[in-house]
Design a protein around this nucleic acid. Structure first.
Lengths: 185, 185
DNA sequence: GTCTATATAATGATAGAC
DNA sequence: GTCTATCATTATATAGAC
């Protein structure tokens, strides 16, 4: 009985990287096997439901990342500017300065209205809602806070798309720099 | 010798829809066959190089759409505001008000540094450059025009991602409405 | 918990008739 | 230019040894 080579969290972290860089269809079992270092049979041992279960578990894992990097920092006590700056620092790190894409985008192609699609929708809405509450704290009324938060989300996602498409991370860096004035009143 | 069922342009238009909604890996030959109404053998008759050649030809087809909907309207004579409004009206139509995604995004996962990747990069840069020139006409200096154009591109791409992710087209509509003040001085 | 080996299905691609 | 039938390859998934 060989000892486990990777913790479950390490496996999920590697799966997250594969799915966000290749998408659902592009992440074949052989590629996943290569990137995680686990044989196919081992992968099915951990995820009997195959790729669909892997995606579901990765998205649960993303729940934790979202909570730690986005929700908690924005929900803590403190000045809106300071809280937002913490989130910005965190996502700059998570997206490697604009080098890596967003798994909520990469997986949205596969996800029509199945379980993973619903989960993706919930997660992006939770992120927007957290930014919305900070916008309210800064003095925006309900409608303006919601719109500013959606626009902030679009700025982040769009900057990631463009940064990768034209191979220029500065687009993402400037988007992060503009976030405070975009979201806060 | 059966008559052609579709013109080449109609085939390319349908291929564009499949690739932008499913991405490269998600667009299987059987799905492509179903969506175009052509048998696999017919598809290989038109595109002997298979899916890679289809993508290459679709991107050439996108050249024409970009020229017609974006480049030409922005390059014509006229006031910057009027020209930009024409582009906005055109892309609102092309993306069906925010319902459909951008093929430059959908295909960017497959495209590392191969031919299609280079083409995608060129096309997004051409779009940005056209917006950049209009920003200059409105009074921006070179550096500000470039940054505003990149940010406008990110707004469009981000709004499409978020609109689809949270199933809310108004995000895209508001992004279009904000484009003039975002791009022009 | 991991492996090798294998079964089964789907995919990209081709041959040849019409 | 389109079709049916088929091939070769790759994909997902499983069985059973250790």
């Amino acid at each position: 009985m060989p000892a486990p080579l990777l913790t479950r969290d390490e496996i999920l972290a590697r799966l997250l990287e594969v799915f966000r860089s290749r998408g659902y269809e592009g992440a074949s079992m052989s590629l996943i096997s290569k990137e995680t270092g686990l044989g196919k049979a081992s992968l099915y041992h951990h995820f009997p439901g195959g790729k669909d279960e892997m995606v579901a578990e990765v998205l649960k894992h993303v729940d934790g990342i979202l909570e730690q990097f986005v929700i908690a920092p924005l929900t803590d006590a403190g000045a809106p500017e300071a809280k937002l700056n913490t989130m910005i620092k965190n996502i700059d790190q998570f997206y490697c300065g604009g080098e890596k894409g967003c798994v909520l985008d990469s997986l949205s192609i596969k996800a029509g209205s199945d379980a993973s699609g619903i989960k993706l929708k919930e997660q992006m809405r939770a992120w927007i809602k957290a930014m919305e509450s900070v916008a309210k704290e800064s003095g925006c009324d309900a409608r303006e806070a919601k719109e500013r938060a959606e626009e902030a989300m679009a700025s982040i996602q769009g900057a990631l798309v463009v940064a990768r498409a034209i191979d220029n991370k500065s687009v993402f860096q400037r988007a992060l720099k503009r976030l405070p004035e975009q979201l806060l009143k």
